[in-house]
Design a protein around this nucleic acid. Structure first.
Length: 466
RNA sequence: GUCGGGAUAACACAGAGGCUAUGUGGCGGACUGCAGAUCCGCAUACGGGAGUUCAAAUCUCCCUCCCGACCCCA
């Protein structure tokens, strides 16, 4: 059994074999930090966060880098509007990014390279591209990549240059020799943020930073390169060209792309103006519901965004969380002995791994959780489950949760609250015994207002924080 | 135009030749003083048309419609 990954490069699912056994070098394209991140970015972040978590769960030693594009036209323009320095603006949104990432339960990447801090590596790479004959310098001090020199352009896109030009949208501008040529170094306009280079003051083109930063920090070849599928062309295509022009080696063995989030049938994007900021959504939905919403679909599929969808995810997840907290409570109160759960547990683990091994099918993995919930709910109701068995299930769910991050962390038991609740529950039992339902219901209602949900059942009451 | 991905019950979303998909919502039952949770059951499916096959939601071909990429994008 091994992991299978849908590789954009070949369009097929391929067995995952890293360059170096047991190790995974992974680079995921991050965001251009000129504004707050939206739910579309959140999807990509959660998807790749989960993939990293799973690879680690499967025993791989993963190095994961995600970049920030902190120098680009939009940042420069936005900063000019606000009358501040470009890097001051990008620093602000990088800060926001981390605040938002935390609200999504994202584990930190090992390193976050920023274009502005990688100039020596970027300039070096541009020089190497020129030296290899793939780059040319223009009169104004810009440097372009020459696609004419490339043998098999369009590998990732599976397209020919001629076909793309027929779109009529690609135009020959400036000093380009071929309309498909792209800037790897842009000369600075007066007043713009710039760095010194052999070609004069300027800044990097969009695609070069990723190529340069990968090479600088991860090496010539990596295992997995990820990002949204809107980056396939031209961004990733061009990254491949740049890197291979210099190293002669494939940039990444596997290319993974997540599907777009759609709002009313259209892609969510800044330019469409139909986006929802993570920080706004996170006001109303917690990270577990948001993660569940995203992971309840395969990462490559398009996904509809609406508040109803989030509401739906929240309700669905509640079923799983109820099961999880019930198992937690049963662990303390359930009977000893009971049937052996080890076979069942092993089966669930196998199914979970089989689902995730198949191109990280989180949706199928979640179905395993629902199956587990149904059968354990039943065995708890029938008292055929032992407290030990419940404990084993809880650890199993904790294990799965290290990958998915959808169950809430059980807050440290406050012993005081436990005893207070015990008193209240006993008191209510007494009241109910005397059929003083008005009082017992009042207690339950008031607890609800205080954020504690009390549920009566045949053998005592259960409570949990909500 | 070229290339890619889709169309599955009320909704969302898996599956990929035969095996009860799953969840939310709906309806009906069990449990219950009530509420909630939980369990059991029910209903509504694989865009259309041909074909291959003993057997097709799944494979092949054709058609219709949707989304994305080709300027910026996760």
């Amino acid at each position: 059994m091994s992991i299978v990954i849908k590789n954009t490069l070949t369009g097929k699912k391929e067995k995952f074999v890293p360059l170096e056994e047991g190790k995974v070098k992974m680079y995921v394209c991050g965001v251009t930090v000129y504004d707050d991140i939206h739910m579309g970015h959140a999807r990509s972040m959660i998807v790749f966060d989960t993939i990293v978590r799973y690879l680690r769960y499967r025993g791989y030693d993963v190095v994961h880098h995600t970049n920030f594009t902190d120098v680009d036209d939009k940042i420069i323009n936005r900063a000019a509007e606000e009358g501040i320095d470009a890097l001051e603006l990008s620093a602000r949104y990088i800060r926001h990014y981390f605040e938002d990432a935390e609200k999504l339960g994202i584990n930190k990447a090992d390193y976050y390279p920023k274009a502005s801090e990688e100039m020596p590596a970027i300039i070096k790479m541009v020089e190497e591209i020129i030296d290899s004959g793939f780059g040319y310098v223009t009169e104004d001090g810009s440097v372009y990549f020459s696609v004419d020199k490339v043998k098999d352009y369009g590998r990732l896109t599976n397209q020919k240059i001629e076909d793309m030009e027929s779109s009529g949208r690609v135009v020959l501008d400036g000093n380009k020799k071929n309309p498909m040529d792209f800037a790897i170094w842009k000369s600075a306009k007066p007043g713009e943020i710039s760095w010194k280079s052999p070609w004069g003051e300027g800044r990097p083109g969009w695609h070069i930073e990723c190529s340069a930063m990968i090479r600088e920090h991860l090496g010539d070849e990596i295992d997995i390169h990820g990002g949204g599928n809107d980056l396939v062309f031209p961004h990733h295509e061009n990254e491949i060209l740049q890197t291979e022009a210099v190293t002669g080696k494939p940039l990444s063995k596997y290319w993974m792309h997540n599907g777009m989030l759609q709002v009313q049938g259209e892609k969510m994007s800044k330019s469409m103006g139909n986006f929802f900021r993570v920080r706004d959504v996170a006001e109303k939905y917690d990270k577990h519901a948001i993660r569940f919403y995203f992971l309840n679909t395969h990462y490559t599929s398009p996904l509809l965004y609406s508040e109803e969808m989030l509401e739906d995810a929240k309700n669905s997840l509640e079923r799983l969380v109820n099961n999880y907290t019930d198992l937690g409570a049963y662990m303390k109160q359930g009977p000893d002995g009971g049937e052996d759960v080890s076979d069942a547990v092993e089966k669930y683990r196998e199914n979970f791994i089989a689902a995730m091994d198949d191109d990280f099918n989180t949706r199928a993995a979640i179905e395993v959780l629902f199956q587990l919930a149904r059968t354990t709910n039943k065995s708890m109701a029938e008292k055929t489950l032992s407290k030990e068995g419940a404990g084993i299930y809880v650890s199993l769910l904790d294990e799965f949760n290290r990958v998915l991050g959808i169950y809430p962390e059980i807050s440290d038991d406050d012993g005081t609250l436990d005893s207070v609740m015990e008193i209240l529950i006993d008191l209510r039992a007494e009241l109910r015994e005397r059929k003083a339902y008005d009082l017992s219901d009042l207690i339950r209602d008031r607890l609800g207002e205080a954020g504690i949900r009390l549920e009566d059942s045949g053998d005592g009451a259960k409570w949990k924080r909500i």
